[in-house]
């Protein structure tokens, strides 16, 4: 009860006080548990059943099978709203299961709040018929049946994610990776000098002249296509297509088994680019003609100093 907002409690107390003709303060005190329940015969509602919507999410109850769960009672009406199963069928199922389990009929027991805050009139099958409530003339008793859907108020869903501190777990790994690449780079730089050929000479074009290695795939394409296609259209189209991948591939799954087509297409282009680059680098000699690197030598200036 403690988590029912003050104003809702107050409104509820006022309504009940009006219905029963008692002072508001008395009802309020009784509701908040500060005073014992008035032993008025005009109090047929079972204790603990408030006409106020409890903010507990409804999802806590309905997933369970419609069997009385320890609390003794089950609210078929609310469950019916919740699950969409017709009330009569639910009722029958609940009774059948209770009979099978040898339990008393749960649908007769008083509704016990549960996930849905429901105030219902006492079932008519109760052994001792309640005396007619002493309602003053002209005051209508309001019964409130509310199903509070989860998410209608607030969805408190804490998904437990397995997290670790960046320090030291991630930073340590990154630092080691950084050191490793620095060591590799330093070692290569100590032992292999960057190439420096003769002074630039506009009158003497080396044969073959090749672009930097990452453009050699494109230069290789120049051997097959018109320069406008190989030099402009294909790289431009390729870049744009690359950028549009997320908007073309609308498949939300990231599991490799769900995205075989995407992986296949991407791999095809990556492998094609790699083959073209390797081909342009090692299998093209003077005049950009085909050569075997193991027979005719390597015509790849980027690598010259490494091979020396």
């Amino acid at each position: 009860m403690a988590d029912i907002p003050e104003d809702i409690l107050r409104r509820s107390a006022e309504a009940r006080a009006r219905a029963e003709g008692r002072p508001v303060e008395e009802v309020l005190a009784e509701m908040t548990g500060e005073a014992p329940a008035a032993s008025s015969p005009a109090e047929p509602a079972p204790a603990g059943t408030e006409p106020a919507p409890a903010p507990a999410p409804a999802e806590t109850a309905p997933a369970a099978p419609p069997v009385a769960s320890g609390n003794g009672g089950i609210d078929v009406a609310a469950l019916s709203v919740e699950t969409g199963v017709p009330e009569a069928i639910l009722l029958r199922a609940t009774r059948a299961r209770a009979k099978h389990d040898g339990l008393p009929d749960p649908t007769i027991a008083a509704p016990a709040g549960g996930g849905t805050a429901v105030a219902t009139a006492p079932p008519p099958t109760t052994t001792a018929p309640a005396p007619a409530p002493a309602v003053p003339e002209g005051v209508r008793t309001q019964r409130l049946l509310t199903v509070v859907k989860a998410g209608a108020i607030q969805q408190v869903k804490s998904e437990p994610t397995d997290k670790v501190s960046v320090w030291p777990h991630l930073l340590a790994i990154e630092f080691v990776a950084l050191l490793v690449i620095l060591v590799v780079l330093t070692a290569v730089s100590i032992f292999v000098d960057a190439p420096l050929l003769e002074f630039a000479n506009f009158n003497e074009q080396p044969n073959p002249s090749k672009a930097p290695w990452y453009f050699l795939g494109l230069q290789e394409l120049l051997a097959y296509f018109d320069p406008m296609v190989a030099g402009v259209f294909i790289p431009t189209f390729g870049l744009i297509a690359l950028m549009f991948i997320p908007y073309i591939d609308r498949n939300p799954s990231i599991r490799p088994s769900d995205r075989k087509l995407a992986i296949m297409i991407f791999t095809f282009f990556i492998v094609a680019a790699a083959i073209l680059t390797i081909f342009g680098s090692f299998f093209r000699g003077p005049g950009f003609n085909f050569v075997f690197p193991w027979r005719d030598g390597i015509f790849f200036d980027d690598l010259l100093t490494i091979l020396d």
């Binding site: 190439p195 050929l197 074009q205 672009a211 930097p212």
Partner: peptide, 10 residues
Amino acid sequence: DQLALWAFTV
């Protein structure tokens, strides 16, 4: 140098 000039040219 020659490498720079002609690679850049291509």
